[in-house]
Design a protein around this nucleic acid. Structure first.
Lengths: 193, 193
DNA sequence: CGCCGAGTTGAACTGAATCAAGAAACGTGG
DNA sequence: CCACGTTTCTTGATTCAGTTCAACTCGGCG
C-alpha cells in the first residue's frame, strides 16, 4: 500500500529506506471506490491525498449544474484543496474517485512535521508548489491563446497517460469544451495522420 | 517613495514604525516609464516588484504575435515571475509599465531575510501566496464556465479599479476576447441599466 | 490643423455549442 | 456467460457567441 509513495520519495526526493519509515508514519492509507467523495463543496479540506493507484479529480459545479474539472490525479500525484486546507475555509470544490483508488492522506500537522524533518524534503515540496503554480499559469495562457484543438493537443503532450485512461467527457470538461466537440477533434486528428 | 509600502505593512501586516525601517532596507526603489520593461522573455527574473504607484502588467506573446495578459498590478500589488525567480530558469513572460510607475524591488535573498525577520511577516506572505493560488484557480474555472459577458462582470466586481484605468484592449486581452467584443459587451451593459 | 492610436459600430463569417438520434461499450444480475 | 439497461461516444443538422474585417468617430498632441 505504500509502494508507490516509497518509490516516489526514493526517486524524486532521494531518500533512504530508514528515512522513509519515518515519512510513512505521517500518512493515513485509505481506499476510495469509484464515485466516492474525498471532499465535498462546503466541507473543510483536512487532507492532501497522494495517489498510490487509481484516479481522482477535483471539480466545481456551476449554477447550470455543469461540472468543471480543475485537476486530475493519478499515481504519484497529489490532490487537495490547498486553500481550504490552509485557511480552514469551506471548500468550493468536490474531489471524488474516477476509479477505485488507494490514496495516502496527510493532514496539515503531519505535513508540517514531515517538511521540518528534512531539508531535502522541504526543498522538494517547495519546488513542487512552485511547479504547480507555473502549471496553473500555463493553463490560463492556454485558455487565452489556444483553440479547442490546440488545447487538446497540448494536453495530449503534457498528460498522455491521463488522456488515455479518463473518459472523453471528463477531458472535455477539463478543456472547457463539449464532449461532442472533443469527439470531432479526435476524429479529425485521427483522420489527419 | 515608500509611503504606499509603509501603509501596506502597517495595515495588512500590523507592523510598527521601527519594524518598518528594517523592512524598508530590503527594497530597491526604481522608476519605470510607460512601456519600459521590468522583465523580458528569456531573461531570468531577479526581483519581485511592489507597486508604489502606477500600473504594470505581465503577459506572453504567442506565435501569432498576440499579447495575452496574465496579470495587472496597481498600487499595493506585487508582480514578478515567481517561477523564474525561484528556479533561475529564463522567464516566458514580459513585464512592463502601462503608466509611469514607481516600484520597490526585492530580490530572493532580501525576501528570505525579510520573511525570517518576523513571524507576522512570514505568515502574511504565506497567506498571500495561498490567496494568489486560489485566485489563479478561480480564473481557470471562470474560463471553464463563463461567457465573455460573465467574465467581464466578474472582473468588474473583483477589480473595478483596474477596469477603470486600464485601456479596453488590455482588459480584453486579460479576458481572452477581442476588443470589439468587449466594446459591444460594454455597450450592451450600459444600455441595460 | 492634421495625424494617430483607441474605441465603436456594422456585416459577414466561423468555431464551437446545442439538440437529437444512433451505435458501441460496460457492468450487473439472473 | 448472456441479456438488458445504462452510460459513453459518435455523427449530423442547426444555431449562436464571438471573431474578423472594414469603415468611421473621437480625443489627444505635435
Amino acid at each position: 500500500m505504500y509502494a508507490t509513495l516509497k518509490k516516489y520519495f526514493s526517486e524524486k526526493v532521494g531518500i533512504t529506506e530508514n528515512e522513509f519509515e519515518n515519512v510513512k508514519s505521517f500518512f493515513l492509507p485509505r481506499k476510495f471506490k469509484r464515485r466516492q467523495f474525498l471532499l465535498q463543496k462546503g466541507q473543510v479540506c483536512k487532507y492532501t491525498a497522494f495517489v498510490e493507484n487509481g484516479c481522482l479529480r477535483s471539480y466545481t459545479i456551476d449554477d447550470m449544474g455543469e461540472e468543471h474539472i480543475l485537476q486530475f490525479a493519478i499515481e504519484n500525484w497529489w490532490i487537495s484543496d490547498q486553500h481550504s486546507l490552509l485557511t480552514g475555509e469551506p471548500s468550493s470544490y468536490f474531489i471524488d474517485a474516477l476509479e477505485d483508488s488507494e490514496v495516502l492522506l496527510i493532514d496539515k500537522q503531519n505535513y508540517d512535521k514531515m517538511i521540518n524533518s528534512s531539508n531535502k524534503i522541504e526543498q522538494f515540496f517547495n519546488q513542487l508548489t512552485q511547479n504547480n503554480r507555473a502549471a496553473l499559469e500555463r493553463r490560463i495562457t492556454s485558455f487565452l491563446s489556444m483553440t479547442a484543438e490546440e488545447k487538446y493537443i497540448f494536453m495530449l503532450e503534457k498528460y498522455p497517460d491521463i488522456v488515455q485512461r479518463v473518459p472523453l467527457r471528463h477531458i472535455a470538461s477539463y478543456l472547457g469544451i463539449t464532449p461532442e466537440s472533443l469527439s470531432r477533434i479526435r476524429g479529425h486528428l485521427a483522420h489527419k495522420n
